[in-house]
């Protein structure tokens, strides 16, 4: 047993954390600012796109997925995949109801 038992673990430097914090705060400011601009349907698109970027930053750096084994990455992706299945297949029913009968 070595004296640093978790040697395999990648230690992320605080500089990265600070950079991510600043990026997240900037993106928050951006998304709030963007909501004040009239973009019609794109308001939602932009807001969600920024949310996805923010969430990815948190997952990749704060949650160390960027430095994690493939299994962890696969776990995250499979969670997203099933979540998207739930949403898209449920929505598929709701959307196609408007098409009426054959």
């Amino acid at each position: 047993m070595s004296d640093s038992p978790e040697h395999e673990q990648h230690i992320v430097s605080p500089k990265v954390y600070v950079a991510i914090l600043l990026a997240l705060l900037t993106l928050t400011a951006t998304t709030v600012a963007a909501s004040y601009v009239e973009m019609y349907v794109f308001n939602a698109v932009v807001a969600l796109a920024i949310a996805v970027i923010k969430a990815s930053l948190v997952v990749l750096f704060f949650m160390h997925v960027k430095y994690s084994p493939r299994l962890t990455k696969l776990t995250v992706v499979s969670g997203l995949f099933v979540f998207l299945c739930l949403i898209s297949m449920t929505l598929a029913d709701y959307v196609s109801r408007a098409w009426g009968r054959w």
């Binding site: 909501s35 019609y40 308001n43 807001a47 969600l48 949310a51 969430a55």
Partner: peptide
Amino acid sequence: DIVWIFLFPLLYLISRH
């Protein structure tokens, strides 16, 4: 935190306009 990152635009922002 991530859940909130999505709740914030969905509940507060996207309908502002």
